[in-house]
Design a protein around this nucleic acid. Structure first.
Lengths: 138, 138
DNA sequence: AATTTAAATGCAAAATATTTGCATTTAGAA
DNA sequence: TTCTAAATGCAAATATTTTGCATTTAAATT
């Protein structure tokens, strides 16, 4: 079992199991969003053993605690690259290589809030994704 | 068949059919996101007749032309309230009443672009949703 | 107004995706 | 080492989405 995955699991107060480690490994080894089935297949290919049902259950847990996020445009999963960092996470999806990165901007919420206020809306949470071309592809 | 729906369909150069009108009526009569099945049930309840398969096909078409949008946090459908208006549509989802409105802000893209640029990213399209309390609920 | 034709629809069935119940295994505390 | 709640796997149940094909229909044409 990879050490990096144990560390992550411990950080999030999750029981350290083979299956959970395998799911993390599968997601750490790519920057593109993955479906349940893709993660399952990836694990089997690398000689791991896991049931698809377990992948469902693990991803649900990871999503609830914010360890993974759903990619807005596809609904697939990405490992959040900014664990624990406060602030509004913005996804940057590259149309060319498929990579999804996340970034945080301090001022962003302020602008969102201003826009919201002008519509009489009080925002508590935010979802955003920018779709375009990443630095390595341009 | 309601006149408002005929007008919308004509605007979008879609054949004017009973089914398409019924889907629009179902969506016009609520401000909360609806699933395929919810739209189907709603139509049957109001004495309309349509098959669930047709609801799938119509929503796919409506989504492709931007007449409806997918609500980011749930994946359900909302009728875009800003048809044809250019610019970045931001969804405002009320946690209290469930209403989803859309608004446009001219400056928003500029801020997003600035944030993106600082990460070396060139944005082409945007998705955003603010989750909070709407004006009528607060 | 009748004719024609491509597009739209419905139905049944297939294919996929997701959830559930229950027996077994396992991580980690005692 | 022992114990227990949590995690897992399997099989089956549900739910969702797609597909093939026959029929119907909107609307263009005559």
């Amino acid at each position: 079992m990879k050490q990096a995955t144990r560390t992550l699991l411990r950080q999030y107060n999750l029981r350290i199991t083979q299956s959970r480690s395998l799911v993390l490994q599968a997601m750490l080894s790519t920057k593109t969003p993955l479906t349940h089935k893709e993660i399952h297949r990836k694990i089997l290919k690398t000689d791991g053993s896991i049931s698809l049902v377990t992948v469902y259950r693990i991803l649900e847990a990871y999503e609830n605690i914010g360890l993974v996020h759903r990619h807005l445009s596809t609904g697939s999963f990405i490992l959040c690259s900014l664990q624990g960092e406060k602030g509004h996470h913005v996804m940057l999806s590259c149309q060319d290589c498929g990579t999804v990165a996340e970034c945080i901007d301090k001022d962003f919420c302020k602008h969102e809030d201003r826009i919201a206020k002008s519509a009489g809306f009080s925002p508590k949470a935010h979802l955003s994704e920018l779709i375009g071309i990443c630095s390595s592809c341009s």
